[in-house]
Design a protein around this nucleic acid. Structure first.
Lengths: 276, 276
DNA sequence: AAAATAGTGTCTTTCAGACAGTATTAA
DNA sequence: TTAATACTGTCTGAAAGACACTATTTT
């Protein structure tokens, strides 16, 4: 219709409700999970300023938009990786960040979720093998890996009164959604291997499942099940030099296989009661 | 820290990269699915203006933000329902829209996805029982239920050259993601009942699965399986007056049960090859 | 009468989970 | 030597899928 793209944009903007011009800010927040000392940890930053000063929050920040009418700016997953890199002090092209699994979790935009202005936040979920402590890195003064168990999250996604470490904004809800997503993903995808190094043992993989699901699994059945799913893991032929903490034979080493879905799936035990 | 929230907001805005001020618009797009004549249909609008004039698009529009510093404006799911109501001519409080299943699908924000400005779009997925034709309603001149099969979508989410009915922006990708989500949801949730009326027969429910999954199911095994999953359907005790199109006994009538997850799940047949 | 459909019965295979048992290692 | 651990074998019950079969309805 109009060959001039700027005329086009003026038409476009004129055709909509003027309330659309009220500012909406778009941010990304990242739920970065890892396993440390056998427990599930999440990367949190300490807020220095109001609102929610002194409380913890998920790492995140504004999406760089690019100027109007142009195609500059960054894609949403790039913004998530950038925020993660800034907070951990790792470079975005580091091998450790490159092996990371990143997926979109959901978008949170309820009016009033930030008391200052309307903010729509796109949350990402990251699964990382054990990463260095954030304080070793760059300008990430306040970031640290925090045991998820210490946050006292309930199933409904909030923190009961008396919880010492409280999360700002609606970040308890976002983290809760991320944990539930992670628990489900381990059932039907091989993403538990994203928490491990390049080579890992079956007992290490089982420890990932136990940390994320929060329950102990039967070692023998787990072992046989993992090896029976085509493409979940492939043998390296080697044997680990390490062994279990209190003895036992040296476990064999495996790599992640080429499956993208687990078939049949590894279902969480004892979910029959939670279904209604 | 600062008791004045406007001072607070100024601090807040001053602390971030100035590129954050470049405008980002937030829209919602809706993938509304229904079953008509035994086939899966999606609600599409015809675009009258550039860009993509004459092409089809998902219904959608700007999220009403509310003014700065206040908590006005609409929540994202409310915006999705509003867009759907505007396009179908139904009122947002109609029973037919009230029974609708609505869930967030994902957020699409790649720079350049709209040639005019940076737009981040939150996509919603809706499952609807058969709704009236949009043209009967209000100002929804260009909306219509379109057979998904006519769009020629490939697994990778694009339309090969030569497709007659083309989708604007990245809406082929969004629709493709919505279809895959719907296929998966039918496996482990009872949401197929959201495509049916209040009362339905097992063969009608099977027709929903066949339309969404695009393959025929074994009638006998499907029947036994549905009845064996606790809480999927509950009997009304009544028998339908209608029967199969070419004869057969009158099927019994059921209502949706109280299950929120299907256990054990109804898995799609023949997915072993698609896993890697 | 013929064909299609609703619903049930039965058999086979697969798989999850319980349990037992052997070999290997640390304490 | 004891205890923990890695792994394997075996059994049972649940469930999916193939197939057969009866009863009911339309054409």
């Amino acid at each position: 219709m109009s060959p001039d793209p700027r005329q086009d944009e003026r038409d476009f903007l004129a055709n909509y409700d003027p309330r659309a011009y009220d500012p909406v800010a778009v941010t990304v927040d990242v739920v970065a999970l890892t396993i440390r000392d056998g427990g599930l940890h999440v990367l949190l930053v300490r807020r220095g300023e109001a609102p929610f000063a002194g409380m913890s929050a998920l790492p995140g920040g504004f999406v760089r938009a690019g100027g109007p009418g142009r195609t500059g700016g960054e894609d949403l997953p790039d913004a998530a990786v950038r925020e993660l890199a800034e907070e951990t002090g790792l470079q975005a092209d580091d091998a450790e960040l490159g092996r990371l699994h990143l997926e979109q979790l959901g978008t949170y935009g309820k009016p009033g979720r930030d008391p200052r202005m309307r903010i729509v936040s796109v949350a990402y979920l990251a699964f990382a093998p054990e990463l260095p402590d954030p304080r070793a890195g760059g300008d990430a003064a306040g970031a640290e890996w925090t045991p998820v168990a210490a946050l006292g999250l309930t199933e409904s996604g909030d923190q009961p009164p008396g919880t010492t470490r409280r999360l700002a904004f609606d970040h308890a809800r976002i983290l809760s959604d991320g944990l539930e997503r992670a628990r489900g993903k381990l059932e039907y995808t091989p993403l538990a291997t994203a928490f491990c190094g390049d080579e890992f043992t079956i007992p290490e993989l089982r420890a990932v499942y136990e940390a994320v699901w929060g329950e102990e699994l039967h070692a023998g059945n787990f072992h046989r099940k993992v090896l029976s799913v085509p493409g979940f893991v492939e043998s390296t032929g080697a044997t680990a030099d390490r062994t279990g903490r209190r003895g036992g034979p040296r476990p064999r080493l495996y790599r992640a296989g080429d499956a993208r879905l687990l078939h049949p799936a590894l279902l969480r035990p004892g979910r029959e009661e939670l279904i209604r």
